[in-house]
Amino acid sequence: MPDLDFRAAVTRARPAAQPAAEPAEAVATREVNFYYGSRQVLFDITLTAPEREILALIGPSGCGKSTFLRTLNRMNDTIPNTRLTGVVRVEGEDIYAPGADPIALRRRVGLIFQRSNPFPFSIRDNVAYGLKVNGLAKRKADRDAAVERSLQLAGLWDEVKDRLDTPAHALSGGQQQRLCIARALAIEPRILLMDEPASALDPIATSRIEELALELKTRYTIIIVTHNLQQAARISDRTAFFLSGRLVETAPTQQLFTNPGRKETEDYLTGRFG
């Protein structure tokens, strides 16, 4: 096999061995099928994401990895004419059970989008938005503390602390994306979903997001969709490979990248398609 860059990245980023004990499951799906109208885009996805790890979803465009990500906080519910079968459990709870509340779910499962999408408000009001709509931290002092804490977690505090009341749109692309992460962190979710969070960013901003993901993993479970194989290799603990709406293979990242179990995975990793 050719010596590819991302393999080097794996060994660089992770000289230590995988954690020995298998941690608890943050997210577990069983035979999830998903349909846009009559078109099926996910086929029998059974996948688990252990707690406080980074799970990377990789695969060619249109393979369903973003759609799968959005089933985990029921964002697909907002698209008309969609349908899901199967079971999705978040921290043991069936989130598609009758009577399950998608609003409460989204408070626990944050989502970072591919394109940074700050609101046309000030930096402070962006971060405080989730607190406001969820009725959290009603006192101004509590809210300000939460804003500071979230911006610090997102590594943005030092850059913006003197201009919290200026428009968020004046920030650079990378800063905007970290602001969106801070905004998601403010309501203290348990799980962070990231949909190609760095695909629109330059290499330096990308590496900041990756460092951030590695820091955040000590407190949150992170599931990240990425087109960037090196990125998956650098930051994730486990990797799942999607192809044409099916989950081909999931394994510890180092194993999947160095010794893929399936022919399709190897073909994709070696650049034969995708």
Binding site: N73, M75, T78, I103, A104, R106, R107, G110, L111, F113, R115, N117, P118, F119, P120, Y129, G130, K132, V133, N134, C180, R183, A184, I187
Partner: peptide, 20 residues
Amino acid sequence: GLRDAALALGATRFETLWTV
């Protein structure tokens, strides 16, 4: 993305419309 961002933060449809 603006709408989705608000929804993903746990805003209801109405809150999303009204506040974002």
